[in-house]
Simulated assay, not measured.
Amino acid sequence: MLFAIDIGHNCPPDTGAVSGKYKEDELAKKVGESVIALLKNRGHKAVSVTPRNASSVNSSLRQRASKANSIGADYFISIHFNSFSKQTAHGTELYVYNYRSRAKNLARLVLNNIVSLGFRNRGIKYNSFAVLAQTSMPAMLIECCFISSDIDMRIFDAQAMAIAIVNGLIGEDKKEENISGVLKVLETTYTKPSTEQSEDLAAEYLYKITPGEYRGKLVAEEEGHYAVEFLQQIGDRKVHYIFSKHCEFIDD
């Protein structure tokens, strides 16, 4: 299957939102490049359709849709981040062209996977965005979360977001069955939504875990942390990060 991956903005004068230290361009690029790599690693074709230069925002948008159409992509996936003037807005929402869109069901799977990371579900919405209206294949635009929201940015992790998107698009990687096993927790610690320090996260995002053995699947290893999907759900997240010095993962 061939996916056209539109890494939102990243083509001056088509630039993304900025909120404090967060830039939409930078986060969309991190997630988008990881999505492309994951899709390729799992046997699919994935091509970035983000243009290198454009004379205007409209030109940038036209080029993205035109490239997706020209390569005969099966699906068009546009990756963005939201921003709002007030921090009360937070969560994930996806857009398709209209209620008849062939991408609607797939978009719901992607949304559900992202929401399982702990983000608020803002639903599937309809809009005639140029990249949705001008593409000839099923297309969706993903607003991963709000860069203007402390709630969202405490949860956000680029690799976990990319994994959630890819699992929504093509299902969970069957190869992950080969890395199921037991997480042996050596001392009382916390599971987290990302690799950030516990003291930098609000208490509601932390789950205490006591010494013992917990079955699950190793999703990733990042920055001195294990990302684990536990067999027995802990809290309302699907994937939890745990400092590797407090535990060890033993493969079956």
Rank of each mutant, 00 (worst) to 15 (best):
K30Y: 04
V31D: 01
V31P: 02
G32K: 01
S34L: 15
S34G: 01
V35S: 00
I36P: 04
L39D: 00
K40Q: 10
K40W: 03
N41V: 03
N41A: 13
R42C: 05
G43W: 03
H44W: 03
K45L: 04
K45G: 03
K45Y: 02
S48P: 03
P51K: 03
R52W: 06
A54S: 09
V57Y: 14
N58R: 04
S60N: 15
L61C: 14
R64P: 11
A65M: 10
K67Y: 15
A68E: 13
N69L: 08
N69W: 05
S70L: 12
G72A: 09
G72N: 12
Y75S: 03
Y75Q: 05
F76G: 08
F76I: 07
I77C: 03
I79W: 00
I79S: 04
I79K: 01
I79Q: 05
F81M: 14
F81D: 07
N82C: 06
N82E: 06
K86S: 15
K86L: 14
Q87T: 14
T88W: 11
T88D: 15
A89H: 14
G91L: 08
G91F: 05
G91E: 10
T92S: 15
T92N: 13
Y95Q: 00
Y95W: 14
V96G: 11
N98Q: 02
N98A: 04
Y99S: 15
Y99W: 10
Y99H: 11
Y99D: 13
S101M: 10
S101N: 09
S101G: 10
N105M: 03
L106P: 05
L109Q: 14
L109W: 06
L109F: 08
L111R: 15
L111N: 10
N112V: 05
V115N: 05
V115G: 02
V115C: 07
S116W: 05
S116D: 15
L117K: 01
L117I: 09
L117T: 04
G118C: 01
F119H: 07
F119E: 06
R120F: 05
N121S: 06
G123A: 08
I124P: 11
K125P: 10
N127I: 10
F129Q: 07
A130P: 14
L132M: 06
Q134I: 06
Q134R: 07
T135H: 07
T135L: 09
S136A: 12
M137F: 08
P138M: 09
A139W: 00
A139E: 03
M140G: 11
M140W: 10
I142V: 13
I142Q: 05
E143V: 08
E143S: 12
C144M: 14
C145W: 09
C145N: 13
I147M: 06
I147F: 01
I147S: 06
S148K: 11
S149Y: 01
S149K: 01
D150C: 08
I151M: 09
D152P: 11
D152R: 09
D152M: 12
M153S: 11
R154A: 15
I155A: 11
I155Q: 08
F156C: 02
F156E: 00
D157H: 15
